[in-house]
């Protein structure tokens, strides 16, 4: 339990509870981003490069799913993972793994949709050249994803931002269990409900700072990479 103290004091004193919460938040949201990227990057790239009946509908659907309400995703994953649900035997409900799954579902459409747009724009530049060189489909996809990598970092950051900021899904599938599934956002919700508004605000400031730091790091990596890539 976070003792009632200023969030600033908690940081300075290296409060272990606070650090465990921060660590879990980052582990869950970063794992979710990686999982979503493994699905979303190839999916977005494929959608950009292929033409098939109903493709427009799929693109619209994925774009719309960027706005999936976290609480609906949470409830759906909850019903799937519950002991009474189809995947209940795995006993994953109320664990960090369940939280990673829910957040990955939430942000896969974001990464896929932004990847599709980015790769499609790049494709229109590369098309004639690649067609002339007779590059095969798999090679095309790999080349375009690689050449778009700096823009795709932004797509992944958008996904990370969404994951780190949401409370609806992790609250439902994680259960906000102290020391086990309590994240920054569920801790903020809890402290608010306990009426400790200053501590809740302080935790909010810490969360924003973390998101800012991660974005800065990504920006730095991108700048270095672009310089090296010339």
């Amino acid at each position: 339990m976070l003792e009632s103290a200023s969030a600033f004091h908690l940081i300075l004193s290296g409060d272990p509870t606070l650090f465990a919460i921060v660590r879990l938040s980052l582990a869950v949201s970063l794992s979710a981003v990686l999982l979503a990227a493994l699905v979303g990057l190839p999916l977005g790239g494929l959608l950009a490069l292929t033409r098939f009946p109903g493709r427009d509908a799929v693109v619209v659907l994925i774009n719309a799913f960027m706005g999936l309400p976290p609480v609906v995703v949470g409830l759906t994953v909850f019903l799937l993972l519950s002991r009474s649900g189809p995947l209940g035997s795995f006993g994953l409900l109320f664990t960090p793994t369940a939280m990673v799954i829910a957040q990955a579902v939430l942000i896969t459409p974001i990464i896929a949709a932004l990847t599709r747009q980015t790769v499609e724009d790049l494709w229109s530049e590369y098309r004639d050249e690649m067609n002339a060189m007779g590059v095969g489909p798999a090679q095309r996809l790999a080349t375009l994803l690689y050449d778009a990598r700096f823009s795709l970092v932004t797509a992944m950051l958008a996904g990370f931002g969404r994951a780190a900021a949401e409370v609806g899904a992790v609250m439902i599938v994680g259960g906000n269990i102290e020391g086990f599934t309590r994240t920054m956002t569920t801790a903020i919700a809890l402290e608010t409900s306990k009426g400790d508004l200053p501590l809740a605000m302080g935790l909010g400031a810490i969360l924003l700072t973390l998101i800012l730091l991660i974005n800065s790091a990504a920006w730095g990596v991108r700048a270095i990479g672009e310089r090296q890539a010339g």
Partner: peptide, 8 residues
């Protein structure tokens, strides 16, 4: 990813 999942 493996690290993240192992952690959880």
């Amino acid at each position: 990813l493996a690290l993240g999942l192992a952690l959880s």
